[in-house]
């Protein structure tokens, strides 16, 4: 894999160790992720890929017993420094979760939420942003006449695209996705995948997935995790056709998982 210059690195982990209490869940992980790419984290359950994803926006802060060594760098800054305001960080880094989790509010209010908590009151700006975000997440045509309806009335796939729109409304530069399609039917999954392909133009996307085909279809680079180790990190093409490590080969071909 090509070496990235400092400027090209959007996200970086340096000698990262993560512990939950006495248990070590990530072991000396080093990775550098290039801007405007899609990176897939794959690996069997419990390999630490979700935990790793969540260190980039510090969602692990709330987990009891969480402790880390090493550094996480976003846009050239160590995000675990004391002076970093975690709320500001999370506005720059959108997150989409495994299960769609729209707020119990209207469709419009869900997308407007991020702006409103920032104290933005300009109605026109909010309306424009809501429309833009819903268009970006390919949901606009389906909901434009029902913006006042409860978000909970949408189907699972629509809810997930709403959650993506909600994240996009804040205009982040990075999008973290934690198995965003695992709770969806194949058609909704296809829509989400198309969407990720589109969003790549403007965002740096990191996606955790259990679905190997999905990783193969949508990602530029793939990182394979096993038992807290980053086993192999390379271009997706290479990982899926000619991996260097035997363990990766075994996982990809379905010999364990």
């Amino acid at each position: 894999m090509e070496k990235l210059s400092i400027k090209e690195k959007k996200l970086e982990a340096i000698n990262l160790n993560v512990f939950y209490g006495a248990k070590q869940v990530l072991k000396d992980v080093n990775i550098a992720i290039k801007a405007n790419t899609v990176t897939a984290f794959i690996g069997p359950s419990g390999c630490g890929k979700s935990t790793f994803l969540r260190t980039f926006n510090r969602m692990n802060d709330y987990v009891e017993g969480f402790r880390k060594e090493g550094d996480i760098i976003v846009d050239g800054k160590d995000i675990y420094q004391k002076m970093i305001r975690v709320e500001e960080l999370r506005k720059k880094i959108g997150m989409v979760f495994q299960k769609p989790n729209p707020f119990p509010k209207s469709i419009f209010e869900n997308v407007a939420y991020g702006l409103k908590i920032q104290g933005i009151k300009n109605k026109k700006l909010i309306e424009e942003t809501v429309e833009k975000s819903l268009k970006q997440s390919a949901l606009w045509d389906e909901v434009k006449d029902d913006l006042k309806k409860s978000a909970l009335s949408l189907s699972g796939g629509q809810q997930q695209r709403l959650c993506i729109a909600r994240a996009l409304a804040l205009e982040p530069s990075i999008l973290l996705m934690d198995e965003p399609a695992s709770a969806l039917d194949p058609i909704s999954t296809a829509k989400i995948e198309d969407l990720i392909w589109e969003l790549k133009q403007k965002y740096t996307i990191v996606i955790v997935t259990h679905n190997m085909q999905q990783a193969g279809r949508i990602s530029d680079n793939t990182a394979f995790f096993y038992m807290g180790d980053l086993v192999e990190y390379d271009e997706t093409k290479k990982i899926f056709t000619n991996p260097e490590k035997e363990r990766t080969q075994n996982y990809i071909t379905g010999r364990f998982g």
Partner: peptide
């Protein structure tokens, strides 16, 4: 209230 809602809100930079 499910934890996922809290995570959703924190993930968007809510205090």
């Amino acid at each position: 209230v499910p934890k996922s809602l809290r995570e959703g809100a924190y993930g968007m930079g809510s205090t």
